[in-house]
Amino acid sequence: MISLKVNGVSRQFNGDPKMPLLWYLRDELGLTGSKFGCGTGLCGACTVHVDGAAVRGCITSVQMAANKDVTTIEGLDPNGNHPVQRAWREVNVPQCGYCQSGQIMSAAALLRQNPDPSDKQIIDGMAGNICRCGTYQRIFAAVRKAAEEV
């Protein structure tokens, strides 16, 4: 039995402790905002926060999150108005939108760690998230904009 908190709600998990958080969130809890992109930690579409730090949900087991706080895109802000989310809409970032949950979670963790990042720090901090539509120019602009607000 593994205990953890997901978006502030206490959860108990009885299944395979090696199950990646991504599949636990999606298949067991129905939190489908975190996306499956590669299954090997290479694309960042599954990014969630564990105790405030960005991790790849597809290679982080439920066991590794035992007794910790997991935050998904659904729990980032009760009204979807985290500064990063607002900046994302103001800059009109998304195209297909599929990678955007992971991008936003990476950006939110980056700004929590470093509220005033340099250009290089933004690029380094976001380089683990692939966007196939190619919205990087706007991602960069939105992180910069959000940084002004946090």
Partner: peptide
């Protein structure tokens, strides 16, 4: 785009 809010909050639905 009309789906901006959903796409920035995890509310947008894809195939899976």
């Amino acid at each position: 785009v009309v789906d901006n809010y959903d796409m920035s909050t995890g509310g947008a639905n894809y195939g899976a």
